[in-house]
Write a protein that binds this DNA or RNA. Structure first.
Lengths: 202, 202
DNA sequence: AACCTTTCTGTCATAGTGTGCCACAAGTCA
DNA sequence: TGACTTGTGGCACACTATGACAGAAAGGTT
């Protein structure tokens, strides 16, 4: 990893940390890009070279998780029921989260508090993921040998899986350590699996 | 209905129609508020008095449907399983849609095409509904006699219901008349109900 | 070291969304 | 008609976001 790349990574994290702290201190809406840029001593223009938008700061983790899900999904065995495969992909995200550094954990906990205080941002993350959700539905449809444009079940499978993940992330809203939260997310996933009729996703 | 109110309603619909047509002609992003305002001969300032944002134009129907759902939900019998009650609320939205005027149908079909071409807007509608989804979860939790903050199942019930509604709305993506589309949405709802284990939402 | 190339950064200009404020016009009612 | 309420337009302003360009920093070459 070159000096250049390391510096970029350091700047990116500095922006992210400054922003998360400012959001917690004075609220998401009340914090401007100018303030964030000022806190890390860069120009506002440079901010937008690291993050495509203000929202992007909050959706950073979401993007990461989503990418991980897609990758995991491609590696699942062909014969596996689609919903089960998706649940494994979600679990891969949980494992990744548990295995990250203490700094990452802190960022995750801060982010969770910010999302809790700004419900519209949770929807924003769905907004960002809408395209991916559609792509996932296409993967599932292909796997099931049906047409993604007309098969409702493929879309429903993905929508249910993402719902379970989202509910696990948001609820319960009590604070806690990262392992506690991922533990509860795992519970929600199992709850979702138990709620569905065996073989519904074939 | 006073002259004032009728005039307001007429202006609102004029704005909406002009905007939907412009979005279809030249795309959502490429259309500015100034253009929309110009097309109905009002000032941009006045536009924002009718719609809180550009997004709001597209989310207009969503807001309407959501409001209808909450109202329906309050009228459902106490003993009914929560998910069943939610499904009835969704059906109430479908009936309302089927019972509206030809103009409303045209707007709905245009909107559907716009949403199809701009996937991020679908997520936006979820973003807008995030708060309501939380409130619905609280209603469900109260109904089940549990604490909304800690009970994951209540949130999952609402999330699944909203997923089913969304999938029904988006998919299949073929065009069709309003009754065809609502018919397919009803199918998706039934599919969701069949996919779940009986008694899962008690 | 001096040099050139590539990449990053800041400045400036610009477009677009959204809001507060105030004067004025339109509608409502006595 | 006159008083009152509400809607409208114009203006200034804050904020997000992007394109263009010049200069600084990093990387490699001789």
């Amino acid at each position: 990893m070159s000096l250049r790349e390391r510096k970029k990574e350091r700047t990116r994290l500095a922006i992210l940390d400054a922003a998360l702290d400012l959001f917690l201190e004075q609220g998401y809406e009340s914090t401007t890009v100018e303030q964030i840029a000022g806190a890390v001593e860069i120009s506002p223009r440079t901010f937008f070279r690291y993050f495509t938008s203000k929202d992007h700061l909050v959706l950073w983790f979401h993007d990461h998780g989503e990418q991980l899900m897609v990758e995991t999904l491609r590696l699942r065995p062909q014969g596996e029921p689609p919903f089960t495969a998706l649940m494994h992909a979600v679990r891969a995200v949980l494992s990744d989260m548990e295995g990250s550094t203490e700094d990452e954990h802190q960022r995750f906990l801060k982010l969770r508090r910010i999302l809790d205080e700004n419900p519209q941002l949770i929807g924003q993350s769905v907004a960002r993921g809408a395209g991916t959700e559609r792509r996932l539905a296409e993967l599932v449809a292909a796997h099931r040998g049906v047409d993604a444009d007309t098969d409702q079940l493929s879309h429903l499978i993905v929508a249910f899986a993402m719902s379970a993940m989202r509910v696990g992330f948001e609820c319960p809203r009590r604070d806690g350590s990262v392992p506690e939260i991922t533990g509860r997310m795992a519970e929600t996933i199992e709850l979702a699996e138990r709620s569905l009729r065996p073989g519904w996703d074939l």
